[in-house]
Structures are given as C-alpha cells and as structure tokens.
Amino acid sequence: MTPALELSELVVTLDGPDRTALRALDRISLSVAPGEILGLVGESGAGKSLTGSAVSGLMPAAARIAAGEIRVDGTRIDNLPRSALRRLRGRRIGAIVQDALSALDPLYSVGDQLAETIATHSGARSWAEAQARAVAWLGAVGIPAPEINARALPQQLSGGMRQRVVVALALCAGPCLVIADEPTTALDPSVQAQIIDLMMRQARRENTAFLLITHDMGIVAEAADRVAVMYAGRIVETGAVADVLARPKHPYTRGLIGSIPALSERVARLHQIEGSMPRLGFPSPACPFAPRCPRVFGRCRSERPELMAAERGEVACWLWPADADAPQPQGATADA
C-alpha cells in the first residue's frame, strides 16, 4: 500500500548569518500509512513543527529543503512549483494548528470560513450549498446547534469549539494526510480527549493518515499507532507505541516517558532530563544527546549513531544492538 506520507532523507536548512546554512533537519526518514496516526514527539526546538511545515509547504522564509524527498500519497511534492503545491494544500494535505483563536480570521463567521474552504476545494454548486455543507461539518465535529453557531465569530466561541472548527476546516476537503501540530496543547484535558477522539474516528472511518506533532507522551500513548522521537533535528527512535512505551530503547525516549508523573506514586521531585538541546550550527562528531545522557560512554563522544533496526523498531544509539561493547540496558523500568 502506498504510504500517505513518506519522507526520505529529508534535510532542511535555515539561512544563518553570513550566508551560512544551519542544518535544522538532518536526514529525516519516516512514513505514515493511510489510516495511521504517527506521533512525532520531542522537546521544543527538536524540529517537529519544521518537519510538519515542510510537508504542508508553510516553512518559515529562512528555511529551505536542501536534500531528500517528500511524497504524499505516492506523489513527490518537495520539487513542485508553488502553484501546484497550493492546489494540494487543504485538498490533499490538511492542517490542524495549535492556537485556533489566532488561526481563524476574526472578521468572518466560522460558517463562512468553512463554506469558503469547502467551495474552494469541492466545487459546491452555490454559496448556499457550501453553507449547508459547512453547517453539516460543524455538526459532524460535535458543535451543538450548528445552524446558530455557524453565524458566530471565532472569538464568540469557546476554545474547544474553535479547535473543533479548525479540525472541520482541515478535514472538510477530504485530505489523505493531516498534519496536526500540537492540536490539543492549548486545551483543557477533557476537551483534549474529545479532539483526540475526533481525529482517531476520522482515521479509522475515512482512512486519513495523521502526523500528530506533540511534546506530550500522554497524547501519543492515547492516540498514536506508531511514534517517532526527534532530538536536535534527527529521529532517534521509532516503533509501535506499545513497544516504545513499554520498552524505550533510547535514553532520551526513556527520559521523555519518565517525565510523565505516574498517578499511583507521589514523588518528591518530578523527573527531568538535565541540560538542554545543543544549539544549531555547532556540528560535532558526537551523539547530540551525549552531554545529557545518563548512560553515555566512550564511543558516544567520538562517533554519531545512525538510525538502525533494533528489535521491532529503530533506534539511533550505541547501546544498540545489545551485543555492542557497551553496558547492557537494564530493562524498561529502571533508569534515572
């Protein structure tokens, strides 16, 4: 089956001062199958959002694709002219953003914005028909009294309602892939669960693929089928969510999972990963996580590990394969 999204060896650089190019994404390879939800996790600045915007073609002006390929539903899109890309946006690639209030135009009712998007992509015969379909979509994403709320301006709706509108805007043209960049971060937990549920139902029912970008391992555990962990512009671990959560291979992944406090136990101090990510533009031959890694050893500081198959996933760490000249990993629970 053709993957809905396939990145191969994608390199994105940022224009630095004095015509230097900083490598912000370093040979990212991943794929998302139709109907699959891939969680892309990592700290702020790891390159998650940049990966998403490279696919939707909305990267910041200073960023450019230096190498690699992006394929959506089998079609290569990274070398398309802007006009062709514009036709794909919204129609084949939907986008859900974090801040629904600033993402909606404050001057038009949510019904009008939805109707405009529907009319643009699916050739509604008349504005009235587009309006009617917009109301139907508002109902489909769980907005009560859609005929009335369609006339509301974005700022007249609650945060959860607005996010539902954003979801409807992303889905209304029937895309095969949706880039969801921190879709629930601004919402309270009960509304978070509803939005997650909405995306999961869409994935199952319409076979829509989701690239779910988040810093929250809890969201990934709840919604995603597979997970890719990013660190400093690279993917350091991938695998099925159940495998990665139960038995994280990379010390960074382990740290991320350890950062979620368990409800059953009270701890004096929340777990944290010491230090911060290396800054861009200081390439070093070492593993970028080495300075913060609790299990660092000699080889980590002289040679950078590549992503390679390990059990049922992939990991970029010298602790794998397990027969390497390193201390054996201690299992899933103990660390830090």
Partner: peptide, 11 residues
Amino acid sequence: EHIRFARARGL
C-alpha cells in the same frame, strides 16, 4: 497566524 492557516487550507 490566520493568514498562514488560510494558506494551509489552500485558499
């Protein structure tokens, strides 16, 4: 941000 999102919707 809403113009960015309008572009992302392919308007």
